[in-house]
Amino acid sequence: MGFDQISLKGRALRLLAGREHSRAELQRKLAAHETEPGEVAKALDELEAKGFINEQRVLESVVHRRSARLGAARVRQELQAKGLDPQAVAQAVADLQGSEETRAREVWRKKFGEPPQDAAAHGRQVRFLLTRGFGAEVVRRVVRRTAHQDDEG
């Protein structure tokens, strides 16, 4: 059993070297390599005790990597898929919602840079932002404001 234990921890550490992983993610990825029930849990307990697995770091890493390109709804999905603490996820999402419109405008600017010329273009811009998880109200404001800037200036 000792050898498998090392190999499970080794596999976990290799995964963690690539990016932060939640305990639930590691459990999923290592389950196939378990030879005795509870082996993966034991290996993960040891790594968690040593600070190699840290849910807060996972959360911050996802928010840092994804928030510039995705709306709060999509970031929430990714955090939930990692099996992170629901309250921590809710707090991170609430924080993101404060900057939602600014982030949506930046994503819009990089992708389109100019107001939609017709209804089809308008629909395309709206769908693009919606599929990235930005809220409908924010998307409407971002696309509408850019369209009206031409009228005013």
Rank of each mutant, 00 (worst) to 15 (best):
E39V: 01
L30Q: 04
V63K: 07
A104G: 07
R76W: 00
L96H: 06
Q80H: 06
Q5N: 09
E34Q: 15
A49N: 10
E60N: 14
A31L: 09
R11S: 07
R23K: 04
R69P: 00
I6E: 12
K50G: 05
A81F: 00
Q97S: 09
P115Q: 13
G98Q: 13
R145L: 10
E34A: 15
A104W: 03
E25K: 05
H122W: 14
K9G: 10
H64R: 15
P86V: 05
K42D: 11
G83E: 03
E137N: 10
L44R: 00
H33A: 14
G123R: 13
V62K: 01
E36Q: 14
R103M: 09
A32Y: 03
E101F: 02
A121I: 00
E100D: 11
H148S: 12
K82W: 01
H21K: 10
K50F: 05
R66H: 12
T146M: 10
A32E: 14
D85I: 01
A90E: 15
A72E: 03
T102N: 10
L8R: 08
H148L: 15
M1V: 12
G38S: 08
E39H: 11
G10I: 02
D118M: 01
G98T: 07
V63F: 06
S7D: 12
Q125S: 08
R14Y: 09
A94L: 10
A121D: 09
E78P: 03
M1H: 11
A88D: 11
R145V: 08
V93A: 05
R144H: 14
A41S: 13
R28P: 01
S99R: 14
F3L: 13
F3E: 15
Q56F: 01
L47H: 03
L16R: 08
F3S: 13
L59R: 09
G153R: 15
A147D: 06
G133V: 03
R23A: 04
L26D: 05
I53Y: 02
Q87I: 05
Q87M: 09
A92Q: 08
T146L: 08
R105M: 10
E137I: 09
R140N: 11
R19W: 01
A90M: 08
A41T: 13
A119Y: 10
K9L: 07
R65F: 10
R105Q: 13
L26I: 04
H122M: 13
L129G: 05
S99G: 11
L96N: 03
S99Y: 09
T131I: 08
G123K: 12
R11Q: 14
R19V: 01
V89Y: 02
A43T: 02
G135E: 14
L44W: 02
Q56C: 00
T146K: 14
N54V: 09
E20Y: 11
E48H: 08
H64F: 12
A12S: 06
D85C: 01
G38A: 05
L15F: 12
G133D: 04
Q91S: 11
E55L: 00
S67A: 15
